[in-house]
Amino acid sequence: MNTKFDVHAIYRLMHDNHIQFSYKGPITQEVLISLGETIKEKLHRDDCDAKVVRRVFSVLVEAAHNILKYSTERAFTSESAKATGIGLIGIGKTDTNLFLVFSGNIVTADEAKMVEQKLIHINSLSREELNKQYQQQLKQGSMTYEGGAGLGLYEVARKSDRPIEYCFSPLDDGSVFFELKIFVKVED
């Protein structure tokens, strides 16, 4: 590590942007459980509506599972025989009374293309169309070997204040850095 690594700058960046917590590393189920419990506990303490807490949690879980399954950076942990995805995930609050759930991880160029198409499509749907297509996928979609149901981004859209914001940045080695910003209304 560079000895000039600026911890204070990271702290300031997170503080100034009202980031409540953030984690970068292997996303395991254990990490997700403890992040989830921490945030649920904090939101309850802040008298946040139970439904809104469930929405934030739901978005966090789907974002975390996307990293866990699709990040090309992977690590072995003691938790599982399979390698798990590495990525960045966190929660903040905007000045405009929205919770922000964000994630960032590296994916293949093919995966990036597929996800981008899906996000463009999902962002174009009305609330009714979104529910209808979610239901259709629920009924007709098949489950992958990893337990994916093709529903994650639909669910994120259903629970959030759309559009879902995203960005794909090509990296030198041909892979792509994928970031997601999902906003959930503090009050319904």
Partner: peptide, 12 residues
């Protein structure tokens, strides 16, 4: 009270 999408699929 809460199910992720993988669980939703199986519940369905």
């Amino acid at each position: 009270e809460y199910q992720n999408t993988s669980s939703s699929k199986m519940m369905y």
